[in-house]
Amino acid sequence: MAIKQQRDTSFEGKVVLVTGAAGGIGRAAAVAFGRAGACVVVADTSVDGGHATAAMIVEGGGKALFVQCNVTRAAEVEALIDKTVAYYGRLDCAFNNAGIEEESQPLADTDEALFDRIMNVNVKGTFLCMKYEIRQMLKQETGGTIVNTASVAGLVGAPTQPAYAASKHAVVGMTKTAAAEYARNGIRINSVCPGVINTPMMARALEREPQREKKLRNVHPVGRFGEPAEIANAALWLCSDKSSFVTGHQLAVDGGLTAI
Rank of each mutant, 00 (worst) to 15 (best):
S240R: 10
N218F: 06
I189C: 06
Q211F: 03
R217G: 00
N190T: 04
Q211L: 08
V172P: 06
E213S: 09
R208M: 13
D241F: 06
R208Q: 12
G226K: 05
H249C: 08
N218R: 14
R208S: 06
L236T: 06
G186C: 11
V192D: 00
E181C: 13
A252L: 06
A235K: 02
S191W: 02
P210W: 10
T199E: 00
C193D: 00
L238I: 14
N190Q: 04
L236K: 01
H249T: 12
A179S: 12
L216E: 01
V219T: 13
E213F: 09
I189Q: 01
N218D: 15
V196F: 12
L257M: 14
F225T: 05
L216A: 02
A179C: 08
A180F: 09
C193K: 01
K176H: 09
V219P: 00
I189F: 09
V219A: 00
D241R: 14
P221D: 02
P194S: 03
K214W: 03
M201F: 03
R188Y: 05
T177A: 13
A183C: 10
S243P: 04
G256H: 02
A205Y: 11
R212V: 10
H220Q: 05
S244D: 12
E181T: 12
T175E: 11
C239M: 15
N185P: 04
P221F: 08
A178P: 10
G223M: 09
H249F: 15
A180I: 09
K214D: 11
C239G: 07
W237Q: 01
R188W: 05
L216Y: 07
R184T: 14
G186V: 10
S240P: 09
R212W: 15
V246W: 03
V222T: 14
G173D: 06
T247D: 02
E227H: 13
S240F: 08
S244Y: 04
N185F: 07
G256E: 05
A203G: 03
R188G: 10
V246I: 15
V171N: 02
A203H: 04
A203I: 09
I187N: 00
P228G: 11
S191V: 07
G195Y: 03
V172L: 12
T177S: 13
R217K: 15
Y182M: 06
R212H: 08
Q211G: 02
L251H: 03
